[in-house]
């Protein structure tokens, strides 16, 4: 039973400027007994998610909408367990795969093949498993001989193909994808749509952040709207 639920989750994250990150200022703060604390500890705290609650279960495909900076990526990272919530609790049952940032974990000097293995192993596969999946990934990406070239020569669309193929090679129970998914060309989008349909059909959870309404309408069955860290659910009919 796959499940992803948030119970009154509030997430704050500290943004350090160069002064806040500096050891000298922390030391000065100790040495001066906090009198120049205002000057020393310049840390801005951003409340990125405010009292967010929801419950996702098998078969839920969520489209995440909201303007730039509304907290979509932060929400995805909190879902994945990368960011710890300041208040509330996150319940996550199931294996998570993420495609959040283009090029994350890729080694530009190594070939596409080497990177497939690297990415797979970073997601916790063994070398054997990663090698066994390579033909499947090879076929799915349609990158052909480009897989022998260093990844630094790839366009963003090609990088996207590679990352998406690896993330979905083993059907994850929870798949979280951020915006850049839309960089693929028409052919690839069609192909990934088919794969996602299969994924959703096998009763898993899928969360997809995007500004592209058409994509969200085709892929998703629930819509979450984020505004300044507040989450509201819109009915699919209203959205469409």
């Amino acid at each position: 039973m796959t499940e992803l639920s948030f119970h009154h989750v509030t997430l704050r994250y500290p943004v350090f400027n160069s002064r806040g990150m500096s050891l000298r200022n922390q030391l000065v703060r100790i040495a001066t007994g906090g009198t120049i604390e205002h000057d020393a500890g310049h840390t801005t705290v951003v409340t990125a998610l405010k009292d967010v609650s929801f419950c996702l279960q098998n078969g839920d495909a969520v489209g995440l909408v909201g303007h730039n900076g509304s907290g979509k990526s932060t929400l995805l990272r909190t879902m994945a367990g990368i960011y710890p919530p300041a208040e509330g609790c996150v319940r996550r049952v199931g294996k998570v795969a993420t495609v959040l940032e283009l090029g994350a974990g890729l080694e530009p000097e190594l070939s596409g093949y080497d990177n497939i293995i690297n990415l797979g192993m970073m997601q916790g596969m063994s070398l054997k498993e990663a090698k066994a999946l390579t033909p499947d990934i090879e076929a799915f990406t349609e990158l052909g001989d480009f897989l022998q070239l260093p990844v630094r020569t790839y366009s963003s669309g090609m990088t996207m193909r590679l990352m998406f193929a690896v993330a979905t090679a083993v059907t994850p129970e929870i798949l979280l994808i951020d915006e850049m998914f839309s960089t693929g060309d028409a052919g690839f989008q069609e192909k990934s749509l088919a794969r996602l349909r299969k994924l959703i059909a096998s009763a898993q959870i899928f969360v997809f952040a995007s500004h592209n309404r058409e994509l969200i309408k085709t892929y998703c069955n629930r819509i979450f709207c984020l505004e300044h860290g507040n989450l509201t659910e819109i009915s699919y009919e209203t959205f469409a």
Partner: peptide, 21 residues
């Protein structure tokens, strides 16, 4: 598992660093 993957990736890091030499 974790250790195996760490060893493999450490080797990949080393290979990448000297790739074109």
């Amino acid at each position: 598992m974790l250790i195996n993957n760490a060893i493999y990736l450490a080797w990949a890091d080393t290979k990448a660093r000297y790739k074109r030499s």
